[in-house]
Amino acid sequence: MNKAVANSRETQSPDDAMIDFIDVHKWFGDFHVLRGINLTIRKQERIVICGPSGSGKSTLIRCINRLEEHQRGRIIVDGIEMTNNIKNIEKVRAEVGMVFQHFNLFPHLTILENLTLGPLWVRKVPKAEAEDAAMHYLEKVHIAEQAQKYPGQLSGGQQQRVAIARSLSMNPKVMLFDEPTSALDPEMIKEVLDVMIELAQEGMTMIVVTHEMGFAKSVAHGVLFMDYGQIVEGNTPEEFFKNPQHERTKLFLSQILH
């Protein structure tokens, strides 16, 4: 992430841009939740977004796969502009993995079926191939032995790792994480973060909304701080934590880093 790009649109987005926000606004009723977001994320970049609740960080990443609609400006994901064109939306969603705070696994399907659902029905992969791939991803998140169980039989940390594997099984170009560890008991946070760190080391493009600053320090290329629907500050993790520029950033950091 380039600070200059984040702050002005005078420069053209680079050729390897994965996600491009151009003056994006969004309202929930009268509430102006995103106020002119300009942001370019390149391929293989890993960005952590933090900020107080209600600052618009979740809404921002949910706009990327159009779980939320923006009302002004442009969002371009991997060369496709997000409009009401449902075919384009589905195309982008297949390329963009998303991990939710509350896992959102499909409780009526086994772990394996959770993973093969997308490949079978969206990518039209043959069943045997989809299952092989699914087992590969389950091994990757260290949970292959649970393949035949149902989500309700797993712990929160295990479920979140399955959710990550489910997204990976679509072989996405970008992974979005919306507070992936916020709903977990403390002893389970590490197992999920470890999987995310492994994923980062493989070069996945990742946008992570989280307050896990350790994660930000160890793998992120850039940290964004959002408040009142704006990107208040964006910097490399070293600078961001050592030398926060903005008063609100300083206050926020003092509150979460005890």
Binding site: F100, V122, S167
Partner: peptide, 16 residues
């Protein structure tokens, strides 16, 4: 809502 969102974010269309 999460079930719809999870399915949609995998690229499943309305019918699926």
């Amino acid at each position: 809502r999460g079930q719809y969102e999870a399915a949609e974010s995998l690229g499943l269309n309305y019918y699926l």
